[in-house]
Simulated scan of single mutants.
Amino acid sequence: MKAFDLQRMAFDKVPPEFLGEVALRSLYTFVLVFLFLKIAGRRGVRQMSLFEVLIILTLGSAAGDVAFYDDVPMIPVFIVFVSLAVFYRLVMWAMSKSEKLEDLFEGKPVVIVEEGKLAWDKVRGANMTEFEFFMELRLSGVEQLGQVRLAIMETNGQMSVYFYRDEEVKPGLCILPDVCIERFTRVPESGDYACARCGEVVTMQPHDHQLCPRCANAEWTKVSLAKRTP
């Protein structure tokens, strides 16, 4: 085999006239996916549950095969789409009747922040790091955890955030990126410090070195008193 053979790289053994069939197959699969999404409802990608994303990935695999491979017939792929559409409708109906089945397919919302602190016991099983949660909170306009009364990671991956009023904001962990805050394993002066992982606030004396009583983390930052900016 000759390396960098442009003929092989562009067409391999496929005749150039097959490109027209590829275009037709691509249009065919586009129409099938479009019809499925119309059946599923008007949801954006971030609004899709894990179950719906799995259905879309399965459709994408079938669509890719029929679009590019000349030995994949089009009618069986149509049956795949119809079968998945019926399955999707049946599962959605069953979930409306059974809360346990809904939890199985859709998952459950996860409480991320409670009363200005990361809900450490509840987020450890969410398969995300605290830095990913902090990123989502920043996208919701949060600068420090003391601004947040309650934050919930919904089953579609979006974050619902409920804020304290300005006069109720607590001292809390600043969740800006590391380049914006300084971390300490041994604090330089007396004051209130927040655990850099879970947000637990502890009063410490100069040169104190201790582990967080909630999550055993050794890094601390000075608490932030920032209020929300309009």
Rank of each mutant, 00 (worst) to 15 (best):
F4Y: 13
M9W: 11
F11H: 03
F11W: 12
K13T: 13
K13I: 10
V14Q: 00
V14C: 00
V14F: 00
P16C: 06
G20E: 01
E21Y: 01
S26E: 02
L27E: 06
T29R: 00
F30L: 15
V31W: 09
L32H: 02
V33E: 00
F36T: 03
K38C: 09
A40P: 05
G41K: 08
G44F: 15
Q47M: 14
M48W: 03
L50C: 07
S61K: 12
D65K: 09
D65S: 12
V66D: 00
V66K: 00
F68S: 03
Y69W: 04
Y69D: 06
D71C: 05
V72Y: 01
P73F: 07
P76Q: 12
P76V: 04
F78S: 05
V80S: 06
F81D: 00
F81H: 01
V82H: 11
A85F: 07
Y88P: 02
Y88E: 03
A94R: 13
K97I: 06
E99V: 13
E102A: 14
F105D: 02
P109D: 12
V110K: 03
E114N: 10
K117T: 05
W120G: 00
W120C: 01
M135D: 10
M135V: 09
M135C: 07
L137R: 03
R138A: 08
S140P: 03
V148H: 01
A151C: 06
A151G: 06
I152S: 07
I152C: 07
N156G: 06
Q158P: 03
V161Y: 04
F163A: 08
Y164S: 12
Y164H: 13
D166I: 04
E168Y: 07
E168S: 11
V169I: 14
K170P: 01
P171N: 15
L173F: 05
C174S: 11
C174R: 01
L176T: 04
V179Y: 12
C180K: 12
F184R: 05
T185L: 09
T185N: 11
V187M: 01
P188L: 09
P188S: 09
G191C: 09
D192W: 10
A194M: 05
R197D: 11
G199I: 00
E200Q: 15
V201P: 02
V202F: 10
T203G: 09
M204W: 06
M204C: 06
L211M: 13
C212N: 04
R214Y: 05
N217W: 06
A218D: 09
E219V: 10
K222L: 10
A226Y: 01
A226N: 07
K227A: 05
K227H: 10
T229C: 15
T229R: 15
